[in-house]
Amino acid sequence: MSDKPKLRVATTSLAGCFGCHMSFLDIDEHLFELAQLVEFDRSPLTDIKHCGPCDIGLIEGGVCNAENVHVLREFRRNCKTLVAVGACAINGGLPAQRNHLDLGACLQEVYLSRDGIANPGVPDDPELPLLLDKVHPIHEVVRVDYFIPGCPPSGEAIWKFLSDLIAGRTPRLPHSMLHFD
């Protein structure tokens, strides 16, 4: 073990599908290398509920409700370098395709007027975060330092980015790893 202090990394999925986190796990054996270099703060991998001071924050997903805004701001406050990972964090992605629909009409369609619905009613439990009228990419809410495009970005691209960043190089994806789909 080297005595070099480990970097702290936090990750979260906002309005995303966890596909980018799955892709992150796809770095396979590099996970062992990564474990030598970093330790995880708030992340689905640790189940820590709130983000403490970190070096790197990885955000998957766009911003679709009030809770997303709070989590994203918590990450920005605590992370020296904030990274948007994947199409949804970068442009809203699939969830943002509701942006041309009226939110009320959308909820009505799904929870009230759909065929075969047993107990019609828009869920209104106070624990549920309020939806925003539009889904936003995260750079519209906080400052973002880097973007890793892809739906999801390949494990290869995520590893290239992280290994560049951790080694102090300017992260740069070659053409073969730069994809929007």
């Binding site: 948007a84 970068i90 442009n91 809203g92 943002a96 942006n99 041309h100 539009k134 936003h136 990419p137 750079h139 519209e140 973002v144 880097y146 973007f147 890793i148 495009p149 740069r172 994806l173 730069l178």
Partner: peptide, 13 residues
């Protein structure tokens, strides 16, 4: 090497 759209999206209908 455009990795983000940088500006705010219009989301036109």
């Amino acid at each position: 090497e455009m990795t983000s759209a940088r500006f705010n999206y219009f989301f036109p209908v």
